[in-house]
Design a protein around this nucleic acid. Sequence first.
DNA 1: GATGAATGAGCTTTCATTCAT
DNA 2: CATGAATGAAAGCTCATTCAT
Lengths: 197, 197, 197, 197
Amino acid sequence: MTAEPLSAKQIARRNQVLDAASECFVEKGFHRAGMAEIADRAQMSSGHIYHYFKNKDDIIEAIVDREIQSSLDRISELENLQADKFADGVIAQLETHLNGVGSIFKSRLNFEIIAESERNPAVEKRVQFQRSAIRTKLTNVFASKLGLTNADIVADACMAVFFGTMMAPGRSAEEQHKASLNPLLTAFLRGVLAPAS
Amino acid sequence: MTAEPLSAKQIARRNQVLDAASECFVEKGFHRAGMAEIADRAQMSSGHIYHYFKNKDDIIEAIVDREIQSSLDRISELENLQADKFADGVIAQLETHLNGVGSIFKSRLNFEIIAESERNPAVEKRVQFQRSAIRTKLTNVFASKLGLTNADIVADACMAVFFGTMMAPGRSAEEQHKASLNPLLTAFLRGVLAPAS
Amino acid sequence: MTAEPLSAKQIARRNQVLDAASECFVEKGFHRAGMAEIADRAQMSSGHIYHYFKNKDDIIEAIVDREIQSSLDRISELENLQADKFADGVIAQLETHLNGVGSIFKSRLNFEIIAESERNPAVEKRVQFQRSAIRTKLTNVFASKLGLTNADIVADACMAVFFGTMMAPGRSAEEQHKASLNPLLTAFLRGVLAPAS
Amino acid sequence: MTAEPLSAKQIARRNQVLDAASECFVEKGFHRAGMAEIADRAQMSSGHIYHYFKNKDDIIEAIVDREIQSSLDRISELENLQADKFADGVIAQLETHLNGVGSIFKSRLNFEIIAESERNPAVEKRVQFQRSAIRTKLTNVFASKLGLTNADIVADACMAVFFGTMMAPGRSAEEQHKASLNPLLTAFLRGVLAPAS
DNA sequence: GATGAATGAGCTTTCATTCAT
DNA sequence: CATGAATGAAAGCTCATTCAT
C-alpha cells in the first residue's frame, strides 16, 4: 500500500506514454484519440500502458498535470525580471505566446483541458488549483518585486488580460502569426505593473 | 437543389432535437454524448433524428450556429444603450454573465465549442465568423454611439477583457456566484468607452 | 378477396416503380438499393409504394418477371426467321447481346437475378420457369422450322453456348465492345442449326 | 510499411473467419450476411474480426481470392492428363462440376461473385484476373499438350462451354444431380481438343 | 516487464415498413 | 390516392480494458 518510488526507467517509460498521448490529444482531442494509437506512438503495446496508468482518464489527468506545471514554470520566469523592466517582460511573454513560438502544443490543449474540466471533476480540481496557484504566484511577485499594495487585484486583472488575449483573436494560423498585443491593453499593463514608488 | 422551406412543425421538431442535444452536450460534451440519449430526450426514435440532420456533426454545427446567434444577439443589445451610460451597460452585462444568470447553458458550451474548433474545420469556420462579426458590431457601435476614432482597437481590447473575464476566475459554482468584475478592468473599460468629446 | 383488375393508371404507376427499381438495382444490386431512393426516382412517396407492392421482395419478384418476359420475347423473335437463315439469325442475336446494344440494363441484372435465385425460393422458381420456357420455345422452333428430330438436345446445347458466351469474356467495357462470337462456336451453331434435309 | 509475415496461429485464425464467412455468404449472400453471425460461427467476438480484416469488404475480397485460387488449381489439374485422353479428362471434370460433387460451396458463390463484380471494382479486378489467368492456362496447356496452333481460340470456346454448362441447366438440387453433359457439346469438345497430328 | 489476442458493450447510421393525416 | 413522419431493429465498426502467455 505504500507508494513505491518510481525508477528512472519507469519514469522514462511513463513519459513516453505521456508524450505520445499529448500528440494524439492535440490532434484529435481527448475523446477522439484512441489508446491503440497512443500505444503505437509510445512504441509500446496497448496492454502495457495499463502498467503505468490505471486507465485513459488517468493519462488525461497526468497530461493536465504536466500542462499545468509547464504554465506555472513560465509564470515563475517572471521572478527573474528586474523591477523597472517588469511590464516589458510580461508584455514580451504575452506576445511570444500570441505568436505561438515554442508553445504550440501546450496552447492547443488549453481549451481541450478547460472544456474537459466542465464535465470531469478530477480535471476541474486541477484547473482550479492552477488558477489559484497562478494568482498566488503573481500576487507574490507583484508585491515583492514591485511593492504593490493591491497586488492581488492587479494579479486578477493581469490574468484576465492574459487569458483574454489568448482567446480573442481567433485561431487561424495567419492571424496568429501577425498578432501583436493590443496597444490599449499594453498601456493598461504598463500602468498597473509600474513599480510602486 | 432548391432548399425546401421547412414547415412550422418541422422547425419545432428540429428544435426539439437541438434542445435535447444542447442538454446532452452540456452534460457530457460533444463526443461523450450519444445519439441514443439525444433521441430519448427529444422524445423521438434515434432513427428519426436523421430525417432532420444529416449526422451528428450536422447537429453539432447547428448547435454552434445557435450559440453564435445568441451571442451576437446579446452584443446587439448594446446598441440600445445611451452614450453616457454606455460603459455602465457593458460592465453590467459582463457581471451578469459572470454570475451565470440566465445563460448557464450557453456559456457552458463555450469552451466545448472552442476546443472543437481546433480539430473540426466546419466549427472553426463558424468560430472565426463569430469573432469577426463581434469585432465588426462592437466597432460600429463604438464609432457611432461614442464617436471613437480608434473604435476597432477599443473593440479588440474589450473583446479580450470580455473573454478573459469569462475564463479567468475558474468555473466553480461558488466562485462563479460571488464573482464581480475586477475594479482595475472596470476602470479600464470606463476609460476606453467614454464618449469622444 | 377477388383479384381486382388494375386500371391503366394503376399499371402505369406500378411501372413507374419498377422502372425506378430497375435503375437502382442495376446500380447497387438488390440488397444495397434502398426503398427511399426507389421512391425518389419513381417520384412517389416511399409509403405509397406499399399500395402497389407488398414489400421489397415483391418488387424484386416483379422485376425478375419483367426481365424474364423480355428474354422470352427475344427468343420468340427467332420464330420469324427463315429456315435457311436460321443459324445466321441466332448468331446475329448473340453478337448483338455480346456488344451490349440495347440491352445493357437487362444483362446487368442477369447475374444479380441468378445470384438471388440461389437464396430466394420465389426467385428460384421464376428462374427455373424461365429456363424451361426457353428450352421449350427453342425446342419447338427448332423442330418446326428446321425439322430437327433431336431438337431438345440442340436446344440444350444452344442455351449453354448462349449463356456461356454471355459470361465468359469478362465484363470490362472495352472487351465487351470489341467482342465477337468465337469462330469455333459459330461453326458449331451453324452445324447443329442446319435445316434437317 | 513492410507487410508483417503472419504467424501460423494468425493464419489459422484468419481462415477461421474466412470459413465462417464463406458459409454465411453461401447461405445468405454477401449483403444479407451479417458480421455478427460470421463472428459467431468463427467462434470469435465480432470486434476481434477487425484485427484480421479491415472491414467486411476486405473479407469479401479475401473470399473471392480463395475461390479464384481454387478454380485455378482445378484448371491446373488438366496439365497432368495424357494427350490422347485429354478431351475425356476435360469432360469428366465438367460432369463432376455439374453434379456438384465436392464443390457445392464453391460453385454456389460463383454467381454471387460475378454479381458483386458488377458494382464492386475490387471484386471486378479479381474476376477479370481470373478470366485471363484461366484463358492463359488453357491456351498454354492446349498448345503444349495437344500441339494446337489455334490454342487461344479453342481456349475461349472451351471457357464458354464450361461456364454455359454451369449456368444453363438451372440450379435445383434434383436437376443438378442427374445432369450430364450435353452430347452435342461433348462431341464438340472431343473435336476441338483432339491432338494435332 | 511486456505482448497483443480477445472481449463485448457501445457507437453512429441505415433501412424496410407502418400509419395518422 | 398520396404523403412523409415515425419507428426500432439491425447493420458495420470502434474502443477501453483485461488477461494468458
